[in-house]
Design a protein around this nucleic acid. Structure first.
Lengths: 122, 122
DNA sequence: TAAGCATATTAGCATATGCTTATGAAGATT
DNA sequence: AATCTTCATAAGCATATGCTAATATGCTTA
């Protein structure tokens, strides 16, 4: 299961500044010079954080005259979160290290741990 | 706006290990000794990560005999993510540092930045 | 072509994070 | 009671993160 996408998005949204920026940019597009004044941080801090949001695929950008306007891509946010919930509800999960599915594990920790430890030794 | 809750949850889910643990525990309750064998990390690493998930309010725990079973609280996940999307769609947002709403900002960066800079100096 | 503005990038630094090993505490088992 | 087992906590360390100041890039306009 590839969860890099989720990690990137959750990580991008885990910083107070980036979360606020994301919420603001969901209302309307904003440029770096506006954001730098709205939040009291340096211009590079804004650019760096926008880069992280961009790499998480969370924002759109559009150049207009001398400015670059950034905005939150709410559609992607919605679709990724939907995917995440599908994964949460998916009936079974493969346990890579042990080469078995979670449904193969007995409910008794004594037995399940023994199975897992054996698998690990191989 | 209080966004600590969201930061905590996003941060909790931003680590590969915690994300995997969360997905597994969504399928069924698991104890520390099982998790420590499923993922190849030390027992304290599991406990510490469960603590972070617990502080984000993402897991339930239940003692049974000598074990403590942890499971993902999917209801809370759903409700918090819903709240997050409401916040995303909320029509207006207050810009604390400038003492104004985002809808008060003109669309022209030249004007908006000037307004913001003035507000900051006060 | 030069100057000015918006944004990106780099280097450097302080703090946060995430693991390990060692140890502690509480309940279960002998 | 003594020992195991399970889980939590603490200390220590390496790496990651997030800012600032300095600098570069690239576009716009005089």
């Amino acid at each position: 299961m590839d969860s890099k996408k989720f990690e990137k998005i959750f990580s991008a949204l885990s910083s107070p500044l980036r979360l606020q920026i994301t919420l603001l940019m969901a209302k309307r597009p904003l440029c770096v010079c506006e954001l730098e004044n709205i939040f009291d941080v340096s211009q590079p801090a804004i650019s760096q954080n926008l880069k992280i949001l961009k790499e998480a695929n969370l924002i759109d950008e559009r150049k207009e005259k001398q400015w670059t306007f950034f905005s939150t891509n709410k559609e992607i946010l919605h679709s990724v979160f939907s995917e995440f919930f599908e994964l949460l509800e998916k009936e079974d999960t493969f346990i890579e290290i042990a080469g078995l599915k979670i449904s193969d594990l007995p409910y008794d920790p004594k037995k399940s741990c023994e199975i897992l430890r054996k698998k690990k030794k191989l």
